[in-house]
Write a protein that binds this DNA or RNA. Sequence first.
DNA 1: ATGAAAGCGCTAACAC
DNA 2: GTGTTAGCGCTTTCAT
Lengths: 329, 329
Amino acid sequence: MASRKDVAREAGVSAASVSYYINNNGYVSAEARKRIQEAIEKLNYSPNQIARSLKIKDSKQFVFLCNEIRNPFYAQLVYRATNAAYEKGYFILFSNVIDDDEYLKRICSYQISGLFASNNKIKKENLEAIVKQGIPVVVLRDVAWSDLDQRIMQIKIDYSNIFHEIAVHLEKGGYRNVHYISGAKSGKPDEVDEKTRNYRNAVGRERSGDITYNITDTKEAFQFVADTYSKEDCPDAFVCSNDAVAIGVVKGVTQLGLRIPEDVGVVGFDNTFQSRFCVPGLTSAEISAEKIGDIAISMLIEKSKGQKVEDYQIVPKLIIRESSSRNDL
Amino acid sequence: MASRKDVAREAGVSAASVSYYINNNGYVSAEARKRIQEAIEKLNYSPNQIARSLKIKDSKQFVFLCNEIRNPFYAQLVYRATNAAYEKGYFILFSNVIDDDEYLKRICSYQISGLFASNNKIKKENLEAIVKQGIPVVVLRDVAWSDLDQRIMQIKIDYSNIFHEIAVHLEKGGYRNVHYISGAKSGKPDEVDEKTRNYRNAVGRERSGDITYNITDTKEAFQFVADTYSKEDCPDAFVCSNDAVAIGVVKGVTQLGLRIPEDVGVVGFDNTFQSRFCVPGLTSAEISAEKIGDIAISMLIEKSKGQKVEDYQIVPKLIIRESSSRNDL
DNA sequence: ATGAAAGCGCTAACAC
DNA sequence: GTGTTAGCGCTTTCAT
């Protein structure tokens, strides 16, 4: 591989001039520009990003710590973020969440430009340790942390209205016995995520018993329904914390011999591809993963330029499909 | 951040000794080890990976170029690869495929340790340019390239039997009019992927007309079925090149007012989570994404150690579920 | 067994 | 405008 030195020699200029040319700072005459340009092409030169990173203490890589890439919501998020980052000159260093100190130290030793994390599997202290090093951090807020370090930027989802909207929608459909399936570990105050907290608020205290905790994927949801209910005692509607879970419920309920939406209504969350192409189509609260991917990247970039960055709010939107529309039949 | 120099000073040894200690080469006395260990802990030191990369010309990052992370098959693959890589001391630099020269140059300038690519969106020449630089390359083979550079390692899927197996299975179910939905751009020789080629071989020449090309995701598949067929003239079985496409077909067929599997049988490919939890459960040819993730990482690592690495063969396995099982009813 | 020193490829302050 | 140079944090050869 040709280095900057080779280019300088070939073009008959100094190494510094090549740097100036590449980074478009400093002064370099039209004459020199041309010769450098030619030398670069001739040698098929490409600047060594590692050497550059070492010098400027920034690798132009953003770390994405995602709960679960196998959940299409995160896949869509990462997909978009990757493209958005590339357009701005960055790459994505991808990681499943492995929440130990060793891991975070290792990844930070790449002099990363910033970090995105969905926050329900990573500890607050670890995030704070990173932001303290001056690395921009954005979290997709899920669990509500108290007194989080102010330097951590947040993308917040405003759940204040959506569960009420869902409740009204189900009621109109004549569903009376609604069960919520939560991804939170338990009902304990410090383990409850924002969705669950808002669901509880929306349905009121008296309905808090109608919640099952700690179900996060399709398989678990299917098992839960299959193991817990029979055709006779199944709730007539389920609200699920993500689409993957909802799909599991659809499958489980169908297996019990019940029909959707005639016997049981199902509502998902995230409006991923899955919900659109589930059979029957799944009613789902849309949170745009693409939007979050884009926003996360621009927040990280702005922050790394030293700009002041405000937290970002997203309001979910209910997309109604067949799985909860008994009235249309 | 503390540097190696700080540690050396704190421990009262030379910088070189710290290096020896960290990399576990060279000699360092028990005495010195202890003092270095203490200094590292006291200063919370972590070696700078970028500086190390520059020196050893290897960043311990593998690039994963995936067709489409939003397809759960690739999501599962990347998920597993990420963990496997981490255990061996590597990270994953993730990219959607952006197949231009500029892009590849930029990513290689990170002195990457290796590259994985699924090969149906990236050009052969580009891969060959990379392997020529001495960077280990593994492809998940899909399109059959002729005279590919020998240094490119391949994970091959042996489709020689699976389509025959599927054909027999459908015939047993009484399905007579089978249509294949291909991901290949067209039927042209240099654009046909391995799956399609083998499907053609399995069903014989006379059935080659029963193929639709250039459909790769759920949405396209749904549109295709909805736009092309009516309840009366729909084929009675579809074989699809991946599960995402199969889901779209299920949805499209259902919308035509036909039932699965009674009226129409559907077979997918890849056996992702989607097929397991589709309603009805989707018959699918299993190719273990997890296995491929693991294998890819170990091939890259072995190659980077200078070992001789053989291509890897995977044989798909038909997983039969409800979507093609008319006889069970 | 340990340390001094050169050098990986780049940036940027400074001198001309 | 352009070149010289120091130095980013690390590895490793060679001398001791």
